[in-house]
């Protein structure tokens, strides 16, 4: 159980966090957590409730600063002060609540916060270039083989899986190094979960690092290249997914293997 990857700084690392710790008052949310996602790799982050997954993800996306530990993005050490910092370095997050505006169209949602303006003096008035926006949104969705009936329907009218796909496509469109996903299949049925897992694989195939936090062990284990398991704020396992079974993962998640090895 000491297969902690000691990957040195290299250019094919999309995002990595080494020996990160974070304390909230008296609570050690993270004590010694490490994770590395290479480009083209899907890394699953597992852990029981309270193991520190959310805190770890928030540190990776820049919304929390760690007390100790080193973050690097695209092979370079970085200090993140905000989500914006991470986004500038090409790391975008797909939140569990998706952060979509249900009344806006697919196209508008894809560009919300990063809208394209027309290339004429009207840009000064904030006039949107909806044509370019829908072309680029269409291309981004096509690239991930996401089929939607129309890009002008409000997101409200899409199914859960389609909304998830839109949120993933938006993050992929905005990120150049890594995509972080928080429980992407939590609200989905079986078939749609599989489509989303498949989508994550295609995102990785485009050369991005993918970090996925999930409770959907069987599906995500089958999809991931590597598995990182947190237990009480520590990385207790970092291993290739193909060597692991769901019972292994569950035993490690609840700390059973840890106690055994002690």
């Amino acid at each position: 159980m000491n297969d902690l990857s000691q990957s040195s700084i290299s250019t094919d690392v999309a995002i990595s966090a080494q020996n990160v710790s974070k304390q909230f008052g008296h609570v050690h949310a993270l004590r010694n957590a490490s994770l590395t996602a290479h480009k083209g790799e899907v890394v699953a982050l597992f852990g029981d409730n309270g193991a520190g997954k959310s805190t770890f993800l928030k540190i990776l996306q820049g919304s929390i600063r760690p007390d100790k530990g080193q973050l690097s993005i695209d092979g370079r050490p970085v200090l993140l002060n905000s989500v914006r910092d991470a986004q500038r370095l090409g790391v975008d997050t797909v939140y569990q609540d998706l952060a979509l505006a249900p009344d806006l169209s697919v196209v508008d949602n894809m560009f919300l916060g990063g809208e394209l303006k027309v290339k004429n003096p009207l840009a000064g008035l904030g006039v949107l270039d909806r044509k370019a926006m829908s072309e680029q949104a269409d291309a981004a969705l096509r690239e991930l083989s996401i089929a939607l009936p129309s890009l002008t329907v409000p997101v409200r009218d899409l199914s859960g899986g389609q909304r998830q796909a839109v949120a993933v496509a938006r993050s992929v469109m905005r990120s150049t190094t890594a995509v972080l996903l928080d429980e992407p299949t939590a609200a989905l049925g079986a078939r749609q979960s599989e489509l989303v897992c498949d989508l994550m694989r295609r995102v990785a195939d485009r050369g991005l690092g993918v970090v996925v936090v999930s409770h959907d062990l069987p599906r995500v284990l089958a999809l991931a290249d590597r598995v990182v398991i947190l237990w009480r704020g520590e990385t207790v396992l970092d291993a290739p997914a193909k060597d692991l079974t769901v019972p292994d993962v569950v035993a490690t998640m609840v700390g059973f293997n840890k106690k055994e090895s002690n």
Binding site: P149, D198, T245
Partner: peptide, 24 residues
């Protein structure tokens, strides 16, 4: 290793989901 019951890898091209309302 436990396999998921469905083989998701073959569903690479999601079929158009018609549950979304079509524009009239």
């Amino acid at each position: 290793m436990s396999q998921p019951t469905t083989d998701w890898k073959t569903t690479a091209n999601p079929i158009v989901d018609t549950r979304a309302t079509k524009p009239r």
